[in-house]
Computed example of a mutant assay.
Amino acid sequence: MIKIRELTKNYRKINVVDHVSFNIEEGECTALIGSNGAGKSTLIDMVIGDKKPNSGQIIDQNKLLNSKNLGIMFQKTNFPESIKVKELYSLFSGLYEDPIDSETFCAMTRFNKQQLDQYAHKLSGGKRGYLILLYH
């Protein structure tokens, strides 16, 4: 379980995250929903360690918030028009010490040979998300 306690982040004396508390229980998938400017991205950045809170605590006793356990799906994903799915797989897998093999990648994403050979920017939003989740 991950506990978020009274997390606060200020920019130039403006509270963008104001004393937020919640738990993420084991096996849960958590989504943050709110209007533009509500502080969702800043909160996520603090939880994953990209930004430091001004106050509050993130309690992660099981050390789940590390790159081996963490997956983040961005709101929007854009790929260069000239890169194919199989080339992105090759690029991303080269960035990791212990990447998944291409067979496992295809089984997880259900990409067939034709989809591996297509340009990544032509994938549906859900299929683009597969590529990002697997390597972030």
Rank of each mutant, 00 (worst) to 15 (best):
80 P>Q: 05
119 Y>D: 06
80 P>V: 03
44 I>R: 03
64 L>D: 09
112 N>Y: 05
59 I>W: 03
122 K>C: 11
99 P>S: 04
121 H>A: 11
100 I>F: 10
81 E>D: 14
39 G>Y: 02
126 G>S: 05
60 D>I: 02
100 I>H: 01
125 G>S: 06
75 Q>A: 04
50 D>N: 15
108 M>K: 12
44 I>A: 05
125 G>M: 06
114 Q>S: 11
110 R>K: 15
42 T>N: 01
118 Q>Y: 08
63 K>S: 15
126 G>W: 02
124 S>M: 02
65 L>M: 11
53 P>I: 03
57 Q>L: 12
89 Y>K: 06
96 Y>Q: 14
88 L>C: 08
86 K>F: 10
72 I>D: 06
59 I>A: 04
70 L>F: 03
103 E>F: 11
69 N>G: 10
41 S>N: 02
84 K>W: 04
99 P>V: 02
125 G>T: 10
68 K>G: 12
58 I>D: 07
70 L>A: 07
49 G>F: 05
110 R>M: 13
88 L>Y: 08
62 N>A: 12
108 M>T: 13
105 F>E: 00
101 D>V: 08
117 D>Y: 01
47 V>P: 03
100 I>N: 02
97 E>S: 14
78 N>K: 10
106 C>K: 15
56 G>F: 07
74 F>M: 09
105 F>G: 00
101 D>Q: 04
45 D>F: 03
50 D>F: 15
99 P>C: 07
114 Q>F: 09
83 I>Q: 07
61 Q>L: 14
97 E>R: 12
77 T>E: 10
87 E>R: 01
85 V>E: 00
89 Y>V: 07
97 E>K: 14
123 L>E: 00
50 D>T: 13
84 K>D: 09
77 T>C: 09
111 F>I: 02
121 H>L: 11
52 K>H: 10
70 L>H: 00
66 N>H: 07
96 Y>A: 13
53 P>A: 10
73 M>W: 00
121 H>F: 13
76 K>V: 08
39 G>S: 07
51 K>P: 08
125 G>V: 08
83 I>K: 04
67 S>T: 13
112 N>A: 08
120 A>S: 09
95 L>G: 05
45 D>Q: 14
80 P>W: 00
107 A>G: 10
107 A>M: 12
105 F>Q: 04
95 L>W: 10
117 D>G: 15
100 I>P: 07
121 H>G: 06
97 E>D: 14
71 G>T: 09
115 Q>Y: 05
86 K>S: 10
70 L>Q: 02
39 G>R: 01
127 K>T: 09
69 N>C: 11
123 L>P: 00
42 T>F: 00
120 A>F: 03
57 Q>K: 13
56 G>W: 01
92 F>C: 09
81 E>W: 08
65 L>C: 05
73 M>A: 13
89 Y>L: 08
64 L>N: 13
40 K>C: 04
95 L>K: 06
96 Y>G: 09
63 K>L: 14
118 Q>E: 15
103 E>Y: 10
40 K>H: 06
82 S>H: 12
60 D>G: 06
90 S>D: 14
65 L>K: 04
116 L>M: 15
120 A>T: 05
64 L>M: 13
87 E>W: 00
90 S>G: 10
55 S>C: 11
106 C>D: 07
118 Q>P: 04
98 D>P: 04
